[in-house]
Design a protein around this nucleic acid. Sequence first.
DNA 1: GGCGTATATGGCACTATAACCAATTAAGGT
DNA 2: ACCTTAATTGGTTATAGTGCCATATACGCC
Lengths: 109, 109
Amino acid sequence: MTNSERYKIEAKARVLKALAHPTRLFIIDKLKVRTHCVCELTELVGADTSTVSKHLSILRHVGLVESRKEGTMVHYSLADECVVKCVGCLGEIVHRQLERQVASLADDA
Amino acid sequence: MTNSERYKIEAKARVLKALAHPTRLFIIDKLKVRTHCVCELTELVGADTSTVSKHLSILRHVGLVESRKEGTMVHYSLADECVVKCVGCLGEIVHRQLERQVASLADDA
DNA sequence: GGCGTATATGGCACTATAACCAATTAAGGT
DNA sequence: ACCTTAATTGGTTATAGTGCCATATACGCC
């Protein structure tokens, strides 16, 4: 494996790690619709502001979301529409998982 | 958020978590081309057999890969072509990240 | 300047993940 | 039956992720 290949695979893993949390997926889901400020997201998520802020920071550091300060508020938005496609594929995978589970339950019966 | 929505988002996070490791991404990359047995993957990854076996187990548990036993060997293959699309989108995201980094370096200069 | 609201950060306790080694299981060859 | 090879599992230790609290910072308003 070349250094470039290794770098790319590690970069992909970093992005995936950032995505791989229910709260962060939920946030991405909300930002898909429109921009939200931290206080709105905090309300939607139902956790401490500091917790949500840290989740947003994680997403921002891998370049999945962008922030824009306006007064005392910070508005977050998706930085890359690609993530929508990515999560979409994920939805298909989970859907197929469910189908398999249902099928194996049927086998047992 | 309904229970079904919560379940789906958690299922997606589980799949992402399983993917979010350089070695596991590397394995997926190899399985994209063709089926491999554990010993081949161990050789390619360059880690302990037990380590690779555990990575494969993680991928199998979320239904990303399948295993087929043949003699003393176990052959692993991709269970869902969707993951190829998903990793592809990831590649685009990482590509754009790099572009942004290059651009910001140019700004500094 | 002082106050209140919106975010971000540091610290801490807790849990989860990862890698290796050692031990186990499984199958073939002899 | 015994040995070898392939793979999995359990144990241990080190490291990383998570969530809340407390604290700091930034901004607008008075």
